[in-house]
Design a binder for these strands. Structure first.
Length: 432
DNA sequence: TATTAGTCAATAAT
DNA sequence: ATTATTGACTAATA
């Protein structure tokens, strides 16, 4: 109905900011008057749908800068601006997926970040939030100290809710499984031979490692997914080293950095892993799970078939590459009819209180970017529109850089394993 | 039904 | 105190 209207205004709002339209009829000031906010605030989802391609890497990079420069934490930023938790923000900022690999939902945080970056008062607003939070915190402390309003002893309701269980603190709080390093290694080895293990193999692994089947399944899901991301970031980094003098030495462009000496047959993930943690201290005992009286310190070592010579690169290229190739120009996304989705799974106010716990989709669109630059002299410089980031344009094509080689290696690896599997008679089901 | 994509939330690491 | 990692869960897809 009115969506087209609102979408339009939003588009203008974001698409081109600097150049004042020419007829801001309503002197829509922003002073505490969110009343006529009705039609103007369409969901960001619509914005996302129309958003041009964004440079996710560049966005995260800038966000990180702004945050650190101003001592703003991820938690605050995430909850206030993105509606995400700290961990998610950390992940997003550290390994953004390329725009074209993101679903509509996945693009949302990036659009929000871009919007936030465009907002001239972004930092200030966030700092205000920070202050407010601190104030609230102080207040709470104070009252708990001077006042005798114990906010801690919620004993009521917890302790003796039901005397049925001799062991009160039951698994209402599942212990959170923590895989021991050996277990992870075993799983990784298994992954190298079979990224997509059959149910049978999974079962075997679970038994051998003394893990729940679901844990093994989840591990594979997560691992594949994370492997893929590592590839993405390398892809991005490899691509950015070409031109667009982002920061490359303007003078000596001597031999390309070719940092990846791993050359052939090298697991991108392990490489990345190694890169990340220079050296982990060893001896980490503690193997969580296994419940008390757990299994004996058995030798869980032993991958199912250590048959291994020259480790074939495990990582696989985007599995079913029938992926959307022709990301033709702009707006490849069909308008998503906002499916009604109720979340509600998320926590109930935890004991204590949950004041700002404003999660749930039902609100995820409030204090976001109010953008609206006062038509100030925001010099758009080279950017045509604040939203449509120019850069990232070229950067494409990496004809024969190491990246390409890596991909080729992955393909070979897949082929290799396929043949190996074929020669055998195991019911392996590979999917292409 | 199997997988992927996104997140959450606990907990490790800085 | 913050930030990073990661097993598990919910939707969405194929």
């Amino acid at each position: 109905m009115s969506s087209s209207e609102s979408v339009k205004s939003l588009t203008e709002l974001v698409q081109h900011k600097p150049p004042e339209p020419s007829d801001p009829p309503a002197s829509d000031s922003q002073p505490a008057t969110p009343l006529p906010l009705r039609t103007l605030s369409a969901s960001i989802q619509e914005l996302v749908a129309m958003s041009p391609e964004l440079d996710t890497y560049g966005i995260t990079k800038r966000v990180k800068e702004v945050l650190t420069d101003n001592n703003l934490g991820q938690r605050l930023f995430g909850e206030t601006i993105l509606g995400l938790t700290q961990g998610s923000v950390s992940d997003l900022l550290a390994r953004p997926k390329p725009w074209h690999k993101l679903s509509l939902k996945g693009r949302e945080p990036f659009v929000r970040m871009q919007l936030w970056l465009n907002d001239p008062n972004n930092v200030e607003k966030l700092m205000d939030m920070k202050r407010m939070e601190k104030k609230a915190y102080m207040k709470r402390r104070h009252s708990s100290v001077s006042d005798s309003q114990p906010c801690e002893p919620p004993s009521v309701g917890i302790d003796y809710s039901q005397g049925a269980s001799p062991q009160p603190q039951h698994q209402l709080k599942k212990p959170r499984v923590v895989l021991a390093p050996e277990e992870k290694e075993a799983l990784k080895r298994a992954y190298q031979q079979k990224p997509y293990p059959s149910p049978k193999t999974i079962e075997e692994l679970a038994t051998q490692l003394n893990l729940k089947t679901s844990t093994v399944i989840n591990w594979f899901h997560n691992y594949r997914s994370r492997i893929r991301r590592e590839l993405f970031i390398e892809e991005i980094q490899a691509g950015s080293q070409g031109q667009a003098g982002a920061s490359d030495s303007p003078s000596a462009r001597s031999g390309r950095a070719a940092p990846s000496s791993e050359g052939d047959s090298c697991d991108g993930v392990e490489a990345a892993e190694a890169r990340r943690r220079g050296r982990r201290r060893v001896g980490g005992r503690v193997s969580g799970r296994a419940g008390r009286g757990g299994r004996a310190p058995e030798e869980r070592e032993e991958a199912p078939r250590p048959a291994e010579k020259a480790e074939p690169p495990p990582a696989r290229a985007p599995p079913p590459p029938p992926e959307g190739p022709a990301d033709a120009g702009p707006v490849p996304n069909p308008p998503p009819p906002r499916r009604g989705r109720e979340d509600a799974a998320t926590s109930a106010a935890p004991p204590g209180e949950g004041p700002c716990r404003a999660r749930d989709g039902a609100d995820r669109s409030s204090a976001l970017p109010s953008t609206s630059a006062p038509a100030a002299a925001r010099r758009p410089s080279s950017l045509q529109s604040l939203f449509g980031l120019p850069e990232a344009a070229g950067a494409r094509d990496s004809r024969d850089n190491p990246l390409r080689k890596k991909k080729a290696a992955n393909l070979n690896s897949i082929i290799y394993r396929l043949e190996k599997a074929a020669s055998r008679e195991e019911p392996i089901e590979w999917e292409f």
